[in-house]
Simulated scan of single mutants.
Amino acid sequence: MAENITFPKSPFPDGLISISPWEFCSFEPLTYIYFNIAFIVIAYPLYRIIGGFFNWELDVKTPSVHFSDMMALVRYGFIVFVLGGYSRTFNWIMILSFYIALFGYALLAELPFAKQSFLTVRNWPIKMWILFITAICAILAMTGFHIYFAILLMNKNEFREKDDVFIAWYLGCLAIAPILMIFAWIANQEQNTRFLTKFFLKLLRIFKRKPATQPPSSQTENQNTEAQIPITADPDQPDQPQPYNKVSIIHLHHWQIFYTLAFFTRFEHPVSQIAGGITLGIYTQGIGAYGPDSYLEER
């Protein structure tokens, strides 16, 4: 028996629509248009206007940078819309929570003790630590709820084989972000220390053949030969790889954290829809205020 899937009314062909609670990829063109209008076309300029009026912390941007940042929101938004199941969960609850989070986080970030970053974590005041720990507890609570809801939804479905695949992939995707962070750490270390290049050169030295030795000769011949042969570098100490011109640092931004969390708020439940709006709102605030800064920064 196949699942009964009700598609929303849309002027687009049904072939463009793929919506199911058991699919990791879902798309509906009309909902996607509404998604972009609500979360990018309106939200980005509105945030910049209100933030500028109240003198919030905003990076100065040229028109070309504004355009690039909005296109970044479109690119990132398409990925999370398709893989995050927003074809099903996008509604007025999510829109309302989105704008509350967008401006609520901005007001919170304007508090004097909250003007911090992960680069200055050792110098955080007590109030900042309280705020940070509270946010971590809220994120863990929402994570636990979504895992529980995924298991609960799994048990309600009759297709056990498909259920098991869904929950395995849902939980397995939680490991994607740590894996990417490990690769980023490797790239950071390679740029700053060239440890991979040094290891590769060390392997080459191991397999490199030593030059054949010549038979001994008289002392006079040796002296003449030494005068003719130029001094070369010690083969055991080859030239070290040159360092890069710029140093890399790891800087985790709040937009990256909440953008990652937005992929897991995929259930048609008010709590999940509120969580989806909050994660998308804070992620949009980060790009709207500062731009899509990279996890690895060069200095």
Score class of each variant (00 low, 15 high):
147 I>R: 10
18 S>E: 09
131 L>M: 11
36 N>V: 12
271 V>I: 15
211 P>A: 10
78 F>M: 13
90 F>D: 00
111 L>H: 07
120 T>M: 03
27 F>S: 03
241 P>V: 10
123 N>Q: 06
187 A>L: 11
205 R>A: 10
94 M>I: 02
173 C>T: 14
85 G>Y: 00
41 V>C: 03
253 H>K: 07
17 I>S: 08
99 Y>K: 05
272 S>C: 07
283 Y>D: 08
45 P>K: 15
89 T>L: 03
267 F>T: 13
36 N>G: 04
274 I>F: 11
173 C>E: 10
76 Y>E: 09
189 Q>M: 10
84 G>W: 06
107 L>R: 10
223 Q>L: 13
293 D>R: 14
241 P>N: 08
77 G>P: 01
294 S>V: 09
236 D>G: 11
273 Q>L: 08
27 F>R: 03
234 D>E: 07
289 A>K: 05
11 P>V: 07
293 D>E: 14
261 L>G: 04
143 T>P: 00
249 I>P: 01
156 K>F: 02
108 L>N: 02
192 N>D: 02
285 Q>S: 10
87 S>A: 15
156 K>M: 08
223 Q>E: 09
116 Q>M: 07
52 G>P: 02
128 M>C: 01
51 G>T: 01
268 E>D: 14
109 A>L: 04
84 G>Q: 06
31 T>S: 13
252 L>F: 08
246 K>W: 13
208 K>V: 12
233 A>M: 12
175 A>D: 01
29 P>Q: 05
2 A>I: 14
150 A>H: 04
39 F>Q: 11
20 S>F: 04
273 Q>R: 10
220 T>N: 02
115 K>W: 01
98 F>L: 03
241 P>F: 12
226 E>Q: 11
101 A>W: 09
207 F>W: 03
